[in-house]
Design a protein around this nucleic acid. Sequence first.
DNA 1: GTGCCTGCTGAGGGCATGCTGAGAGCGCCG
DNA 2: CGGCGCTCTCAGCATGCCCTCAGCAGGCAC
Lengths: 217, 217
Amino acid sequence: MRVLVVDDERGLVRALHRGLTAEGFAVDVAYDGERGLELASEDAYDAIVLDVMLPRRNGYDVVTELRARDVWTPVLMLSAKDGEYDVADGLDVGADDYLTKPFAFVVLVSRLRALLRRQGQVRPPVLTVGELVLDPATRRVTHGGEPVTLTTRELALLEYLMHHADRVVGKVELRDHVWDGTGEDVNVVEVYIGYLRRKLGRGVVETVRGAGYRVAG
Amino acid sequence: MRVLVVDDERGLVRALHRGLTAEGFAVDVAYDGERGLELASEDAYDAIVLDVMLPRRNGYDVVTELRARDVWTPVLMLSAKDGEYDVADGLDVGADDYLTKPFAFVVLVSRLRALLRRQGQVRPPVLTVGELVLDPATRRVTHGGEPVTLTTRELALLEYLMHHADRVVGKVELRDHVWDGTGEDVNVVEVYIGYLRRKLGRGVVETVRGAGYRVAG
DNA sequence: GTGCCTGCTGAGGGCATGCTGAGAGCGCCG
DNA sequence: CGGCGCTCTCAGCATGCCCTCAGCAGGCAC
């Protein structure tokens, strides 16, 4: 789990870095809002701990900008006790939770874990054509309830066909989309259609002579 | 979870009652300090939400008296924003957390849960996938009831995989999230998958050639 | 029927992918 | 300082995936 800590109090940051590392997190640090935004924009963190009072850019700004950039990493805001900024503002702006300083370290960790747990995983939709079901996320394929194991290439091919179900898809188009280069030789496609048929049975992929292939319900 | 709400603003109380009930709490209500103290003294609540400004007895009084009576139910204080009473006073007096009005409902719930969690009364967040059980809080792992000792890195890897159970997780993604830098060389991941398998047996982490790894029930 | 074209398939080689053992670096503890 | 545990790199090796090729079957045009 990668965590980004954005705060300008060196002592606190050092403590958090040590503590969170000991808890098994990989910790990155930024000391001002600008730098924090920069790092966070790479979208490589599982959570962000973000102070409100920061040099160069305040916490609200950072969150707002992050969301505008379509980065949805969960954010745990740290607000100062004096209440100059209102807590509700942070939540309005798109933070997922907040904590007022001072706080106990265990509380921070507990909140952080809650945040990570809560984050819903966005999944691409499941493709269904007749008896065939293909889940891109889990890379699982079932045919009439029976699980089928496919190799990467086979899966890519079937996914493309199912994505364009009911349509006749040309070999060249398949060659272009499922395979890298735009090639002339489309025999690979035929070979792999053969593999699919061997694993799924004859009736699934239909040949349209002179045009291409089709999967239909 | 039984919660006692002590406040004299009827509208707020009604809203809290409905909201907390919906969140799965059993809610009792008192409209003044005296009645609140009376109910709370029975020591049958898991938490108390207590306003500071109350008829007949103010919130500080209630907490002080409760602690004097050896009732240590966690108290979440609600203080008005105008700051006539200082927040710190509440904490000094024996409250466990505080919230300034107005507040968002989700915030209240979040704080309440944190409070309960801190008391150790709430089930810690445990990841379970098939025979595998991983408790991030205690960092303990069991496999079919048998305890397994993992190093920090191994645990982080397993945690990430279990967190995304049933999904195929790419090596690069693992490298990015479980390890610090965003690196090209993903051999470390393979090595650590090997370590996990040595400790957990073959069947736990499945290899999906060309795509990554998966743990599934 | 004859010839041609399209599509299917079995065989096999090359090679990327993934796994593992050995070992170096390093921090920690006695 | 020596030993130990953890982390990570590296190189060798096995597996099986991917793709090419050649031969064959069957449809279509004439």
